[in-house]
């Protein structure tokens, strides 16, 4: 493995960044699944950002005369409520679109807090070494070895459900992963042959950092971030489902599943639809991340 690593890294010629991006897109678009996943995920993000424009109805508006309407393809459904209505006659499609804003918004916030803080701590720890590094790593080992879901659940129960609390609890659960990852990358890059080579060849520190180190840090961090986003969406949905996450009547996927749970037998679409939205989100993220890892990591390219 080591010999392969060295052989392939030493054969990489310095190329301009525009060429690099083109290369990446070219390599990436060859995979139809990955391209589809990226398009779907982008559509989800856009519909979440512009939820107010995209959603056909107000997600909170109740229409009790039209409660538990089935989706359009089932008998009794209509184009007014394409994916049907829930127990209070609220439009499921609109609630799912706004639910996406909630789920992805929480995910983005958690990554912004936990990811940035964790990565900084990790880079700092790898850079400083010594006692700071030792203590931080001991703590991270400790936190990572606890299955966090149970703790998150008890903490949420103690401080009470709510979006802000949820973001804080999920961020606390998320940062050690980023820290450990950023640190390991920092440590392994320090001793890489090509960094040494760049230094020997007379490269300036700044140039080494931006042209050699940064591209190598970025792609694994993006992969970790996307995978972490999918995990956060799932955890948030589970916590909301258990009543320890987003508070009703705010539309959130996990909460919608829970609200419709008791009517599974007579109105299964109210459970199915938000679940399908969660599934599409995590699936597109996971396919994209798997492919991204292969496309951006030169060591992986020949393998698939």
């Amino acid at each position: 493995m080591n010999s392969i690593k060295m052989a392939s890294t030493s054969s990489v010629r310095p190329i301009r960044s525009a060429q690099r991006i083109l290369d990446f897109l070219n390599h990436f678009s060859r995979d139809k699944f990955a391209t589809a996943a990226l398009v779907i995920f982008s559509a989800l993000v856009l519909s979440s950002v512009f939820a107010d424009l995209v959603a056909p109805h107000d997600p909170l508006k109740q229409d009790l005369l039209n409660r538990l309407k089935p989706p359009v393809w089932v008998e009794g459904g209509s184009w007014t409520y394409v994916l049907g209505t829930d127990l209070l006659g609220r439009d499921i499609l609109s609630r799912c679109i706004h639910g996406g804003r909630m789920s992805l918004g929480i995910g983005a916030a958690v990554i912004a807090m936990g990811g940035v803080f964790g990565s900084l701590m990790g880079l700092l720890s790898g850079y400083l070494g010594g006692r700071f590094d030792a203590i931080l790593m001991r703590y991270i080992d400790f936190q990572i070895s606890i299955p966090y879901f149970l703790l998150a659940l008890t903490i949420m129960a103690a401080i009470g459900p709510g979006t802000l609390n949820l973001i804080i609890v999920l961020s606390i659960g998320s940062w050690p992963l980023f820290a450990r990852y950023a640190r390991s990358i920092m440590m392994s890059l320090r001793n890489q042959v090509f960094i040494e080579a760049a230094r020997v060849a007379g490269g300036k520190e700044v140039a080494i950092m931006t042209r050699h180190v940064l591209p190598n840090i970025l792609s694994p961090l993006i992969t970790l971030t996307t995978l972490e986003l999918s995990r956060i969406v799932l955890t948030e949905a589970s916590l909301s489902y258990l009543g320890m996450g987003v508070r009703p009547p705010t539309p959130a996927w996990g909460l919608m599943v829970q609200e419709a749970h008791d009517y599974l037998m007579i109105a299964n679409w109210a459970v199915t639809t938000p679940g399908v939205f969660i599934m599409i989100t995590t699936l597109s993220i996971n396919i994209f991340a798997t492919r991204l890892r292969i496309s951006t990591d030169p060591l992986q390219r020949g393998k698939h």
Partner: peptide, 30 residues
């Protein structure tokens, strides 16, 4: 690696790790 079986296994494993448990349990029950 790279064979049809490999692609099938990889796809199924991605499906497995993407499953929202709350929804999957209810769908199985349904």
């Amino acid at each position: 690696p790279g064979s049809t079986w490999d692609k099938l296994a990889t796809s199924l494993s991605i499906l497995g790790v993407s499953l929202p448990l709350i929804w999957f349990t209810l769908m199985m029950a349904l």
